[in-house]
Simulated assay, not measured.
Amino acid sequence: MPIAEAGIPVHILIDRDSCEVVVYSYLDGMRYEQILMIPFGKTVALPGPVDITLDTEPLRAGSAEAGLRNESPSADFPAPRGGSARATGDKPLLSEMPGPVT
């Protein structure tokens, strides 16, 4: 079941490969109306019901210590349940992405 269909109002993806945080918000039924891509090092105001400001600077520091990219699979990031892991650095499949913003 896709995350939006599960009714999760705000979904945050930390993408260590591209060094950015992706925030999916403003759920409208079965898809998100807003998708923000924020580079590590900036702050982002998360909408309700979360209602916090997230400082991504510590993520940038953590990525630098890890060599900016995680080129090999890690025990820290196991494969999702019920699915197989794709190689590190692969982008989500189109079928996994939310629909266009209208």
Rank of each mutant, 00 (worst) to 15 (best):
K42A: 11
L27P: 10
A85R: 15
S25G: 04
P98H: 11
G67N: 05
R60Q: 02
Y32R: 02
T53G: 08
G82W: 01
Y24K: 09
S72E: 12
G62T: 10
L68G: 00
A85G: 09
R86A: 11
L27C: 05
G89C: 06
G89H: 04
L46K: 04
P49C: 09
A64M: 10
R16M: 12
D15H: 10
S95I: 12
A85M: 09
R69G: 01
A66P: 06
V44Q: 00
A75D: 13
S84F: 09
R60A: 10
D51S: 14
R31S: 15
E33T: 11
S18Y: 12
E20M: 12
D76H: 10
N70F: 02
F77V: 15
D51R: 07
S18W: 08
A66Q: 02
V50P: 03
P73M: 03
I52A: 13
Q34L: 11
S95A: 15
G29A: 13
S74P: 02
P49E: 03
G48Q: 09
Q34E: 14
M37E: 14
P58S: 06
E57V: 01
R60N: 04
L54V: 05
E71A: 08
P98L: 08
L46C: 06
M30G: 15
F77G: 08
S84W: 01
P49K: 04
N70L: 07
S72H: 03
R69H: 01
T53P: 02
A66E: 08
L36C: 11
G67H: 06
P80A: 13
P92E: 04
E57S: 14
T43V: 07
Y26E: 15
T88R: 04
G82R: 00
R81T: 14
K42S: 12
L68E: 03
P92F: 07
R81E: 15
A79F: 05
R86Q: 07
P78R: 12
P80H: 10
T88Q: 08
V44P: 08
P92L: 10
P47E: 07
E96G: 14
R81N: 14
S25V: 10
E65A: 13
P78L: 11
C19F: 00
M30E: 15
E57R: 13
F77S: 12
G67F: 00
S25Q: 11
R81Q: 14
E96T: 11
E20H: 11
A64Q: 06
S25H: 09
G82V: 09
T53V: 14
M37N: 15
R86S: 07
M37S: 15
A87I: 02
Y32I: 04
R86L: 08
P98W: 03
E20C: 14
D15K: 09
I52G: 01
R69T: 03
G41V: 03
V44T: 00
A85F: 01
L27I: 06
V21D: 00
D90L: 03
P100I: 11
M30L: 15
A85H: 00
A64N: 04
F77M: 14
S74L: 06
D51C: 08
D17C: 03
D76Y: 01
E96H: 13
K91G: 05
D76T: 08
E65D: 07
D55K: 03
K91C: 05
L59M: 07
V23W: 05
C19H: 10
G83Q: 14
S18T: 15
N70E: 10
G29Y: 09
E20A: 11
I35P: 09
E57T: 12
G29R: 09
